[in-house]
Structure formats: C-alpha cells, structure tokens
Design a protein around this nucleic acid. Sequence first.
DNA 1: AGCCGGATTAGAACACGTTTCAGTTTGAAC
DNA 2: GTTCAAACTGAAACGTGTTCTAATCCGGCT
Lengths: 198, 198
Amino acid sequence: MATARTSTTDAEQGSAAQRDRRRRILEATLALASKGGYDAVQMRTVAERAEVALGTLYRYFPSKIHLLVSALALELEAIQDKLSRKPIPGDTAYDRTLYVLNRVTGALQRDPMLAEAMTRAFMFADPSASAEVNAVARLMEEMFTRAMHDGEPTADDRAKARVIGDVWLSNLVAWVTRRASANDVVNHLELATRLLLH
Amino acid sequence: MATARTSTTDAEQGSAAQRDRRRRILEATLALASKGGYDAVQMRTVAERAEVALGTLYRYFPSKIHLLVSALALELEAIQDKLSRKPIPGDTAYDRTLYVLNRVTGALQRDPMLAEAMTRAFMFADPSASAEVNAVARLMEEMFTRAMHDGEPTADDRAKARVIGDVWLSNLVAWVTRRASANDVVNHLELATRLLLH
DNA sequence: AGCCGGATTAGAACACGTTTCAGTTTGAAC
DNA sequence: GTTCAAACTGAAACGTGTTCTAATCCGGCT
C-alpha cells in the first residue's frame, strides 16, 4: 500500500537499466506521436531517439501496434490518475458521466496527433496485441463505470458504461479521421448519455 | 425507375471495359479477403488476380484502404438489398432492431476473414478515405434507422440508431481481434438495444 | 580474476504498400 | 484512316515495418 506506482500490467520488472530503456522508448514514442501522429512513429526513429538498437526496441515491444497501445495505456492511466485525485462533481449519474467524458475527450483533443496515433493503433490491432488492447479496454470501462456513482456498480451500471465506452470510441475514430468535428463528438456523447441515463 | 442498379456513390461511370475492370478488382479483393483476411489482400496479388497492372489498380483505388472500404460498401449494400426484400418482422422497435442486428452480424460472422479485412480497413482509414468511410457509415446508420419502424424517423430515432451502430462497430472490432466471442457480441448487442429501446 | 548466458548493438536483408517511368494500347474527334 | 490524349502495362525503385546475424557487452557465479 506504500508504493503509488503506475501499475501497468507488466511494467515494473527487470533491472534498473531495463526499466529505464522501457521508459525512454515510451517517452520517445509519445513525443513522436504527439508531433506527427501515427506515421511519424517510425520504429527506426523511436529506437534512435530512445538510444536503443532497433532489435532491442522489438525485444521490448514486438510490433508498432504493441508499442502504441502500451503508450495509450500509459496515457489513460495518467488521465485516470488525475481524475481520481478530485471527486467527480455532479449529483446525477448523467452529470458525472458527462463530466468524465468531457475531461477525457478534452485531454485527447488537446493533443490531436497523439490521439490519432493511439486511436489508429488501438483500432488496427490484431489478435497478437489483444492483451494490450484488453488492458486499455478495461481501463476505459472502469473509468466510465466509476463515473456513474461511488460504490459498487450493478450489472446494469456496467452495461451502460460499456455502451458509453463504445460510443466514445466510435466518435473518437470519427473525429480522428475528420469525419466529425470536436463539436459533433461532444454533442453525440451528450445525446447518447442522455438516452442511456435519462 | 427501370434500372435496379447497385447505386454505389460512383460505381457506374466509364466505359464498359472500365466497369469490368473495376468489377474484377473488387471481386478479386473479396475473394482474397475471404480466404486470408486483411494481410492476404496484397496489392500485387489483387492486381494479378484481376488481370490489371499494379498501376491501374492504384488508378482505380488510391490505396489498400480505399479498396477494402469500397468492397465493404459493396457488401453492405448487398446485405441491405437482401434485407429490404422482405419486411422486417417484429412488433416493437426492440424486436425489429435486434432482428436486423442479428442478420447483419450473422452475415459477417459467416465469413470471418472477410469481416476481419473489412473491419480493420474501416477502422484504420485515414482522412484521405473519409468519403468512402462516410458512405459506409451512412449505410449502417440508415440500416439501423429503418429497422426501428417504417416511415419517417424522428431525430430521436436517428440518435438511437447511431448509438446502436456505434455499439455494433465496437463489438465487431472486439470480435475480429478475438477479444470477444460471437456469443459475447450477441449478448452485448441485445443488452445495449434493450437499454436504448426499453 | 575468469567464465558464462542472456541482453544489446550495428547493420544487412526481406516483405509489401506505394510511386514512378517509358513504352503501348485504346477510343473519340476529325 | 490519322491523330492525339488518356488509360493501361510491365518493371524498377523507394519507404517503412519486421526479421536476422555476427559481434560485443553486462552481471552474476565460481
């Protein structure tokens, strides 16, 4: 209970040097993604910037998808961490959910290229990365479930949270591909939340 | 009113030879995707099988994504066509929607590799393919909107149809990446539909 | 200190999406 | 039938994700 670590599924093992390499790699990934999106995250460039050999990068992350989805998990954890620092405002599940949705959406929209890189990776992932993808999916579901109210969620709460997560993902994709504006996204999320939570 | 053509956004132009090339290309794409999924749809292979030069393939479809999403639109149209041939059974919007969902989901699950290829392409699409992606999105929305009841849909109907489409897409992705079983998908869809349509 | 096995490195090599180019074919206008 | 632009072809070439290899490095063991 003493350590307040980022409890990524498998982050804290290996020597200090190895943990540092992993950190450098993810750092480089986020920096490149933030500047140029999915295409700018080139494996050679990541390796160079993280000061590891290309082969080493592939030892840590077996594909570009694994790499980006792991980075996404890291980001989501950071967001969730910040969220859980203050209690969620709002009296109704509707208000609280909308608050969380806006916070998360805002965080992504503040860094569109990063959002693009991570969303495309998440959506393109094949079964070999399903562990990483599942970790992210669980994080999302948990975030929206907690939003509804404090205490134990019912099965119904979970179902609603999942639907909201689905709508959120779809809209994220639409926004990233410029089929929907930031405003569209906010409106659709609000509408969907209202439909689900009265 | 005489022609009962497949009214794809832009399918019916050019000489007969051109229409035939386009048809052969899409045919080859569907065959390859059906056999081996996204990875098996290799541009050189498609070109060879359609008996056109690689450059010609790229003249018709500027990227693998455009190609696959166009093929998806074609498939969706076919499904919708078959659907509209018989009236949708069910007395309530809930029943009717579930019927349509099961029909569409079933069609995709009957050809998992094809579903994988088209879903991944749809989700990975970048803004350059947004026209094609939008065409598909519109088809989906229309299908679910029509499912609710006959006649003009209200704004509320549309919103609900969109949410259902979002849930459907998310579950399709989860199924394709083997994070969810066919059964999971059916259950989640039913649950979401119930939540939305009472 | 010397040894060992796994981790790391630099770099070549391979696969496939995409681009480019020089030459040929096609078909519409005259 | 000739002419011309656009479409098509075959083939080479490029970029980036991924794999492979031989050499070197590192940390723990005796």
